[in-house]
Design a protein around this nucleic acid. Sequence first.
DNA 1: TGGCCGCGTCAAAGCGCTTTGGAAAGTTTT
DNA 2: AAAACTTTCCAAAGCGCTTTGACGCGGCCA
Lengths: 345, 345
Amino acid sequence: MNLKELSELLNLSQTTVSRALNGYPEVRDETRRRVIEAAERHNYMPNTRAKGLATGRSMSIGHVIPLSKKHEILNPIFGDFITGASEAYVAAGYDLVLSLVPDDDQAAHYRSLGAKNNVDGLILHGPMVNDSRIPLLQDLDLPFLVHGRASGWPEDYAYFDMNNRRAFERATRHLIELGHRRIAFVNGREEMDFAHRRRLGYEAALAASAIEPDPWLMVSGDMTESLGAESVARMLDAPDPPTAVLASSIVIALGVERAARARGLTVGRDLSIITHDDELSYLPNGRDEPLFTATRSSVREAGRRCAEMLLGRVANPGGPPPQELVEADLILGRSTGPAPKKDSA
Amino acid sequence: MNLKELSELLNLSQTTVSRALNGYPEVRDETRRRVIEAAERHNYMPNTRAKGLATGRSMSIGHVIPLSKKHEILNPIFGDFITGASEAYVAAGYDLVLSLVPDDDQAAHYRSLGAKNNVDGLILHGPMVNDSRIPLLQDLDLPFLVHGRASGWPEDYAYFDMNNRRAFERATRHLIELGHRRIAFVNGREEMDFAHRRRLGYEAALAASAIEPDPWLMVSGDMTESLGAESVARMLDAPDPPTAVLASSIVIALGVERAARARGLTVGRDLSIITHDDELSYLPNGRDEPLFTATRSSVREAGRRCAEMLLGRVANPGGPPPQELVEADLILGRSTGPAPKKDSA
DNA sequence: TGGCCGCGTCAAAGCGCTTTGGAAAGTTTT
DNA sequence: AAAACTTTCCAAAGCGCTTTGACGCGGCCA
């Protein structure tokens, strides 16, 4: 069933049927009712592509996720982020088109998205420090919004970010206030902007308390459970082990916990753990008393905000790019406690 | 830059330019070269919507993910599944459009996907027992493929599934052969078809060894870490606790491990754990000697196969629906061992 | 020399929609 | 009663592409 058939069926012109369905005023109420009723009865819905061609808008937003050939790890936050974004898209009648692109042909992919004109805007995931995609997109005249930021470029693009630096600075300071001096940090890959900023926060807090950062206590890599387990196991077996660990994700923290338990250490007493909690739906950190003390910020909520902001920009391209920086909560859980007294001191 | 402009630039008709770019034979080699070179230089790519309108194909595949209003949990396997599927789509020049749909208006959504004609085919995620979406899609004349199956309907639709029943039967049998009799099962929601089948496999193995299934040892719910931790904690504190646990996902298994350790039990000695391992990229189960004994089947690979099969069906709609059932490997890790001798026996 | 064939190209139709620019009624104003 | 609007509808153009059917032009064969 298409517009032509429907209009012939109703003995009306395509114009009138189209206007009736799209809510234009110049249609008699009774006519509109007839049209709508017939459309429903015959399950008519306008062909997306034809409509898009006619209006010049595709009613869809692209999400481009870089997939490193070397790493091949899809950040698990992505699912929840998309869930949040979808809420906004559904509400606005937009579709979400997803591309996972190997990071070597990112540029070509963005250019083609622009040229082929099949999205009205796009969301950039996983920005890196000095990410070359930013200037590329700025040239492309396709509205875009970055989830995160890219240190190294002037911040004259649209973004939504969590204050990673501040969050990790606070978390570290909290550990210091509990008396910890040997604080390990298991971070994501530090080419990624969020990890870079977290590192800065960690170092700033140490510096503020005149604690010398120890390279042996700092690890960065793909945020897997085993990264947490293996790296911290190594540290615990070395002389002068950490009394606290800062983890960049709950998945890492679970690994750290495993390493601790394997050595008979009690988390929260012998070893403190603070993690960042993205509030992933399948890794709840406890309702009443959280398992992990954590900096918390819902990535799902971030998805929703990103989508809303981008949609706003698409609808209304003028003006300065929207920017939002949210703070993470620092929530207290059972995984932290005062630094243990040194045995030999 | 569009076709018209490009053709004027080249002093050729739109026809010739189009044919040159699409590889039709009736274009002189030198002309084709000229066209291709000009297209590249001006970064011309055909407008997706116009092309789609003209050809009647949208070059995109829909993935519809049901999102239960009550549960709001996005299965974490989804990210890796999509990663695999994307590989196939990218290779074939297809886009992936994603919808997360609240499960109450699934029907409307599918119907609209069909009517609006904006995907050439779709993949159905998370089939339930007796899933009403199957007959609905069969009426819709839109090629589709189910990731999983829907018990209760005749299997006359295209699907790709892992043999959940067999995998969990083997896993359970393995535990029985190790001497376990009290075997707990922490499963996903059993309205879901995969969980339903896993339950059948578990029960079949028990029955084959004449072990009476104990409802106290069987739990089903959203597959979160805390489901594993809390339900098994409860079982361990009850009289006649389990000596082994079968978990439906690694996330659950991590929770089970936490519960065990919290009680001072050593996993693999005091409590055996077998889990299903989807090979999620950020939860690697160890390379050399896996952490968990597990039934293993790559969900990423499943994504790739699903996409390939569906693309085949889209290109070639005739014939019987493609169906594939793969077996999971049973891999031995450190989380299982012989049943401990009973203290009081 | 004329007719035929294949090659390379083109004009135009069509995909299904929106939107512009009327136009035929009916209503109000002068 | 004529003029000026309103209201309600329509025909047709246009979005950017593919594809059909036709055509001009050498070359080949008879």
